[in-house]
Design a protein around this nucleic acid. Structure first.
Length: 197
DNA sequence: GTAAAGATCCACT
DNA sequence: GTGGATCTTTACT
């Protein structure tokens, strides 16, 4: 089951929770890599001080968040790492869901090769926003990508309804003042691939 | 043109 | 659990 455009017009907090357990599909050279989404964070444009688009700040970088829901917002952090966001809500509402961690379901050797790390731990492959982007070869070429119209990157619905969702504070946003206490990070309880408990 | 900070990762103890 | 690496984007002058 494909998730359609209407689904992504919901607000970021709803989507952040609802996307847990769903399947992110990335196709590279004919390989279909399947990953279960296990950890997300919601960023709510104008009011959220942790959001790049706080106060409707619109720059060349943040304009992807002003697109309609169902597109991607890929940004670079610390100069070297990419993070994958799913844009939420309607056009001109800058909300997004950051994908912080996924659980790889196949092509593990290929993902390990992309990561090029010494660690052989399976759960080190994709347990962080920068890591999963490197493993899945997600970079700025996939910024503003429409998840509903393309085959290289999209999301499948999942029948897994037994997951237990934990709400937590978001990570590494000390500068966000009162917003750093918002419980806008969501993850699947007990899942080994979550970046931080 | 220049400076400063940043939604992180990895190796090491 | 800690610290260094490392470079893009932004917001100034």
């Amino acid at each position: 089951m494909f998730l359609n455009k209407d689904y992504f017009q919901n607000d970021a907090i709803f989507l952040a929770k609802d996307l847990l357990g769903k399947i992110l599909v990335r196709e590279i050279n004919g390989k279909k890599i399947l990953c279960k989404i296990v950890e997300t964070e919601a960023y709510i444009g104008p009011e959220d001080k942790a959001c790049h688009a706080y106060n409707n700040k619109r720059t060349k970088r943040t304009e992807a968040m002003f697109l309609e829901g169902g597109c991607t917002y890929v940004y670079m952090i610390y100069g070297m790492y990419n993070c994958l966001n799913i844009v939420a809500n309607k056009k001109d509402k800058p909300e997004a869901v950051l994908i912080r961690a996924v659980e790889p379901l196949n092509e593990l050797e290929y993902l390990k090769k992309n990561r090029n790390i010494k660690s052989k731990k399976r759960y080190d492959l994709t347990n962080g926003p920068g890591k999963l982007c490197k493993a899945l070869k997600i970079d700025k070429k996939l910024n503003k990508y429409d998840l509903c119209k393309n085959k290289k990157l999209f999301i499948l619905d999942s029948k897994d309804k037994k997951i237990e969702i934990v709400e937590a504070k978001r990570i590494n946003i000390e500068y966000a003042e009162e917003y750093k206490y918002k419980l806008w990070r969501f993850y699947i309880k007990g899942n080994k691939f979550v970046s931080k408990i």
